[in-house]
Simulated assay, not measured.
Amino acid sequence: MTIAEVSEKFGLSQDTIRYYERIGLIPRVNRNKSGIRDFTEEDCRWIEFIKCMRSAGLPIEVLIEYVALFQQGDETIEARKELLIEQREQLIKRMEDMKKTLERLDYKIARYEQAVVEKEKTLRRSVD
């Protein structure tokens, strides 16, 4: 699969994919005889994983550490698990914070909706 196809498939720019490869977030992608990147299904699984983790807010540095641990083999399973648990806990905290923000926004919107209704009532009374 070419970088253009991968870019379209995952909704990432080609520059982002190249950057992820350059900093080690995805393993070095094999190239064909012409020197063009030839992405495998395994490469695509890494891109999908990284995209998912980034959209959940995981920092690039954490993902670089995770990939480096993965590449070291099975002796790092516990370290990888701990890293993911820590990131999960941080994500839960962010989600709780976002829920509080959403509730506050809902409250404020409801107040404005109420104010609009009251204003309309006042205008109708003044016209009558």
Rank of each mutant, 00 (worst) to 15 (best):
T16Q: 13
E103P: 08
R94P: 06
K9V: 02
C44N: 10
R104N: 14
R80N: 00
L84P: 06
E21G: 09
E75K: 10
W46H: 11
V29D: 03
E65L: 10
M1E: 03
K33T: 07
Q72G: 06
R104Y: 12
L102R: 15
R111S: 13
G57P: 02
Q14Y: 00
I64Y: 03
E65H: 12
L25C: 08
L105Y: 00
M1Q: 07
Y66G: 03
K108Y: 15
S34M: 08
E8S: 11
V116G: 06
I23D: 06
I23G: 12
K99Y: 14
K51Q: 15
S7D: 06
M95H: 13
I109D: 07
L105D: 01
T122S: 05
L123H: 05
R88D: 02
E48Y: 11
I85K: 04
Q87I: 01
W46I: 04
V116E: 13
R28G: 01
R125C: 05
R45Y: 05
L102T: 15
E65F: 05
Y19N: 02
K33G: 14
L123G: 03
Q14D: 03
D106W: 09
G24K: 11
K119Y: 06
I50K: 01
D38W: 07
D106F: 11
S7G: 10
K108Q: 15
I17L: 13
D106P: 06
Y20I: 01
F10K: 05
T101D: 13
A56I: 05
T40H: 07
M98L: 12
K99C: 10
Q71A: 12
K81Y: 02
V6R: 00
R31G: 06
I23R: 10
I23H: 13
S13I: 10
D74G: 05
L102Y: 15
M95V: 14
S126N: 15
Y20V: 06
V127F: 14
I77V: 05
G35Y: 13
V67E: 01
S55I: 09
I77P: 00
E89F: 04
P27M: 02
K51N: 14
N30S: 11
K121F: 06
I109F: 06
I47Y: 10
E8R: 15
E113N: 09
I3E: 08
M95E: 14
E5L: 09
T2Y: 08
